[in-house]
Design a protein around this nucleic acid. Structure first.
Lengths: 235, 235
DNA sequence: GACAGACTCGTACACTGTGCGAGTGGATTT
DNA sequence: AAATCCACTCGCACAGTGTACGAGTCTGTC
């Protein structure tokens, strides 16, 4: 019944500020939060810890930010800031989409905590929208119209986040366990002992570098999506 | 430093039990947890509330379950239990993969809280593995060998979870806001006001049924992935 | 009747986000 | 110069969380 209300920093005018500038500032808080998130992860970020890092009381932050979720929204959008997307007019829609996908994946891999936020807050911040617009333009240029344009866009982003979320999950789990890749694979192999096909699937991974495999995996699937999209351009 | 240790219910023998059966049981606890999760969502599940629902003390649960995360692992795996996957030998790999994808999507939509768990725990429970094995068999039958088999499998699952996570996120946000779909779209439209292409993208959604659009969207992208996979069978 | 071991549970601890209201210090107005 | 105002800080308190611990209870076996 008393479900948490939905709201977003992006939909609401900010506090009228005189910008006295001698104390905390919103940018400063977001920057510190990003550092903490990158260094210690999402669960390690608490308002008290963040306050301490800034030499301020925990509740002082609440003047600049309505609540923790809004702070996370701000930090989350920051991630998409340095996503390089080429000009679709010069390199073509497929290369643009591919660069978009790779950039998005890298952004998440660089800030693994963001993976946990994907399903929790709307991606409607300025950076996120700018990147989305770029992709959108590429798809229009490709020839997608109306609904197909939406569908194509979400197919690409869906593929990226669907690949990357499990990837960072795997990384953080093996890191937390202090295990190397091989031992982790062994665990999965044991769990799957009853299914010979699955065991085989883990066996031909033996000795391979996890990250390299993931990268190839990503390119493989991305190519499938893009090929499939191209084919649907005909109809 | 004191990062949370990785462990899994599935990798560890259960407590030796005489199954006296007069009090709580693990199955009972998991069932109750599922009910609570389905009814009120992930954040609403607390050990105390779950205990109360079972007429037991909160800490009594800890005899049957090592900690909350393990309980969630158990509940999480339950979800994949009723995922119908046809026999690849009779319907062909593409239809099998498609049924797998649709089943997976439905499972998540029926239990939206599970979306938040996807990146948080390994899917190596029995139900999850059984479903995975089915998909794997279909891909072998299709002709994928070695690495390609892995790649194909993760392309499909990645697409599904990448589509479904934002879908349940959108649903839960509009529900929490008490807004109808149209108002939510209006919000996004305002946020994206600076990008005419994005505005247009929301505009041709006007008046359409959200769920129906999502369904068509899903099929569109899935077809792309499967087409792309088929094409890669040639090389 | 004694013992063991399966199980329950109240208390306590360290932690979380954040509402509230009192306090501070610099700028603006009178 | 005095008064007022308001942006901002922060200590306290509250309700909630997961769960470690240790004492207690109940049941089946010898």
């Amino acid at each position: 019944m008393t479900s948490k209300q939905f709201s977003s920093v992006w939909v609401r005018e900010p506090r009228q500020s005189k910008a006295q500038g001698h104390g905390l500032s919103r940018d400063q808080i977001v920057r510190a939060a990003l550092e903490l998130l990158d260094a210690e992860g999402l669960e390690a970020l608490s308002m008290r810890k963040l306050g301490a890092k800034l030499g301020a009381g925990a509740t002082s932050l609440y003047w600049h930010v309505a609540n923790k979720d809004e702070l996370l929204e701000l930090a989350y959008d920051e991630i998409w800031g340095d996503m390089p997307v080429p000009d679709p007019d010069t390199v073509g829609w497929k290369d643009t989409a591919s660069a978009f996908a790779h950039g998005m994946r890298q952004a998440i891999l660089r800030h693994p905590w963001a993976a946990s936020l994907i399903g929790r807050m709307p991606a409607i911040g300025p950076n996120s929208l700018r990147a989305g617009d770029r992709l959108c333009r590429a798809l229009v240029l490709a020839g997608f119209r109306g609904m197909d344009q939406d569908y194509a866009g979400s197919a690409i982003t869906a593929y990226v986040i669907g690949t990357t979320i499990p990837e960072v999950a795997w990384r953080s789990m093996s890191q937390a366990a202090g295990y190397d890749t091989e031992s982790m694979r062994e665990i999965v192999k044991m769990a799957a002992a009853d299914y010979p096909d699955l065991v085989a699937r883990t066996e031909h991974l033996a000795g391979l570098d996890e990250r390299a495999v993931r990268a190839v995996n990503f390119d493989f699937g991305l190519l499938c999506v893009l090929d499939g999209l191209e084919r649907r351009l005909g109809s």
